[in-house]
């Protein structure tokens, strides 16, 4: 008995050592980023001795970044894009998914096949013709282009449909017998039940839109249309040795995504499991 107990304790200790190692590897770059963001350019790479918080923290890095580049403008554009895209994505794909999962209608399979066929199609394959088309529509260098690009993904519809199929049909049938319209069933029964799936889709869409680089790079050319990612990259290329400032900008660009993630993460594993994303 005793040896089994010792074995269990040793096992636990090993697990904790692994966990701490992993946490260090995962977190060090972020801590280093935070630390460098309040250092002067000379202090950033000072190794002997290395200090996490310099004696005189340069908080001015955080205020200078707003004046060196139009950072507020970039943040504003990105916030606008992310909110609109996430809202449209959640609304339209849960709407369409309800129909595919719970209603019968003509051409259902054909329409769904169109979504399935494109789900594995990388955006990079058709980004060029898409750009040419949007340019024809006068959307070049417009924030609307990014909205059109991100908001109607096959992925969202597919994911929500998988989730809705897990909700028993009886629920909808009972509501129909009670004389509820399909729109009411969607709004008052399905939506409240789909929190895990909606949270998961929100995280995916929010993260993808906030962090997207190639899309904005292709479409948004003028300075006042740029997103935070483009702006930060531009700043890095222009002031490549202003390390403290680069890190301050990076920290600022991470805060919103981390907040959204922390709020929604409790539904995340459940959402991934329930939407069939695990295969």
């Amino acid at each position: 008995m005793k040896s089994a107990h010792t074995k269990a304790v040793v096992g636990k200790v090993i697990v904790y050592i692994i966990l701490i190692l992993i946490a260090v590897v995962m977190v060090i770059p972020f801590l280093w980023m935070l630390s460098a963001s309040v250092k002067s350019d000379r202090e950033v790479f000072q190794m002997n001795p290395f200090v996490w918080i310099p004696e005189v923290p340069r908080w001015s890095n955080y205020s200078n970044i707003w004046t060196k580049i139009p950072f507020a403008r970039f943040v504003g554009n990105t916030v606008f894009l992310t909110i609109v895209v996430t809202f449209l994505q959640l609304l339209t794909s849960s709407f369409a998914a309800y129909s595919f999962a719970k209603l019968n209608f003509r051409h259902k399979n054909g329409l769904f096949l169109a979504y399935i066929a494109t789900i594995a199609m990388p955006w990079q394959v058709y980004m060029v013709p898409q750009f040419i088309m949007m340019r024809k529509m006068g959307l070049n260098d417009k924030l609307t282009a990014i909205i059109c690009l991100q908001a109607f993904s096959a992925f969202g519809v597919f994911m929500m449909k998988q989730f809705y199929e897990g909700i028993p049909d009886d629920l909808c049938e009972a509501a129909r017998i009670d004389g509820m319209s399909e729109y009411r069933i969607y709004a008052s029964i399905m939506l409240p039940l789909s929190k895990p799936a909606l949270s998961t889709l929100t995280i995916f869409t929010f993260v993808a839109t906030w962090n997207d680089y190639l899309g904005p790079l292709i479409y948004l050319k003028s300075q006042d249309k740029k997103t935070i990612q483009l702006g930060l990259k531009m700043f890095i290329s222009q002031y490549s040795s202003d390390y403290g400032l680069i890190m301050a900008g990076s920290v600022l660009s991470l805060i919103p995504v981390l907040i959204v993630f922390l709020i929604l993460q409790k539904y995340f594993v459940e959402g991934v499991a329930a939407t069939g994303l695990k295969g």
Binding site: L19, V27, W32, M33, W210, V257, L258, V269
Partner: peptide, 30 residues
Amino acid sequence: FRTLAFFPYVASLVAITAVWKMLFHPSKGP
């Protein structure tokens, strides 16, 4: 720990590649 492990995934590439480039800087990086 789960949350921490997920941080890199949600963090933007521009920001974290900037850190990596500094950490692995050929002459000055830690």
